[in-house]
């Protein structure tokens, strides 16, 4: 099972499901992080955390711990 925090910079994957806390999951869902969405790992911050992801052309920053709740489809 791959999760969002495990992607390498530049790697793209499809979202399978989001298992984060309620309010975070809602905020991410409102921004389009839903089942089937294509998400790309852009980079991690200089200190390793948080990470920057790209979602439908929009750049978001979330923490690694939260990204662990975003399960990706294994190819």
């Amino acid at each position: 099972m791959t999760t969002l925090d495990q992607l390498r910079p530049g790697q793209r994957a499809e979202v399978l499901r989001v298992a984060a806390s309620t309010s975070l999951a809602q905020r991410l869902a409102e921004m389009g992080l839903l089942e089937g969405a294509s998400v790309r790992m852009v980079r991690s911050a200089p200190l390793g955390d948080p990470i920057e992801i790209e979602l439908e052309g929009c750049h978001l920053s979330i923490r690694r711990a939260d990204a662990r709740g975003v399960v990706l489809r294994d190819d």
Binding site: S21, L24, L60, I62, D66
Partner: peptide, 8 residues
């Protein structure tokens, strides 16, 4: 708290 930040 959850941390979601847009990088415009």
């Amino acid at each position: 708290p959850p941390f979601v930040l847009e990088l415009p």
